[in-house]
Amino acid sequence: MNLNKTKNEKVNLDQLLGKLKKEDSNYSNLCKRMKIVYWIFIPLYTIIAFIHYFDTKELTDLIAGLFLVAAFLLFALVFGSYQKEYKNVDYSLPTLLMLKQAAKRYHPFRKKSILILLAVFLMNASFNLRSQPLFNTVESQIVFFSIFILAIIIGLIIWYFKYKPLRDNALANIAEIEGN
């Protein structure tokens, strides 16, 4: 079925609907899958934490296990929030409101990032609190913080080249619409 009469602008509706549905679900489904994985991990690792505690009778093992569960919980909540955000992308908002939402979305440090940071630190604490840690504490911390800082730098470089121009444009347009 063709939508348009002119030769150059023919769009196959059936093909397009397929694309639309794919677009609709891509990000949202990815986040949904991640969320489901973490919600499966949460009870599983809670049980493992308690089993491990009953084996070793070490309170630090229980705390380490629960820290890991708490990290999973935070990841599940963040992915749930991203799923909701992608699912509800709305281009029919008034332009000013849409621009404000875009500027918020492209901010390098969002509230959600704090939750992710907290989850990463909880995981790190969990690995180091165990009565029989897998790695030497000092060495593992050096590796952890090196990877952590590198990840932040890479993230900021990607943001600077990919998202900062979008945010700057959105902010400039907001200022223009709101000014006279």
């Binding site: 348009n4 150059n8 602008e9 769009v11 397009l16 609907l17 694309k19 639309l20 677009e23 609709d24 992308v89 709305d90 281009y91 029919s92």
Partner: peptide, 15 residues
């Protein structure tokens, strides 16, 4: 024009 037209349709569907 065709690319933007398709993008508008995608956004209509999404919204």
């Amino acid at each position: 024009q065709k690319d933007m037209y398709q993008e508008v349709l995608i956004n209509i569907w999404k919204s």
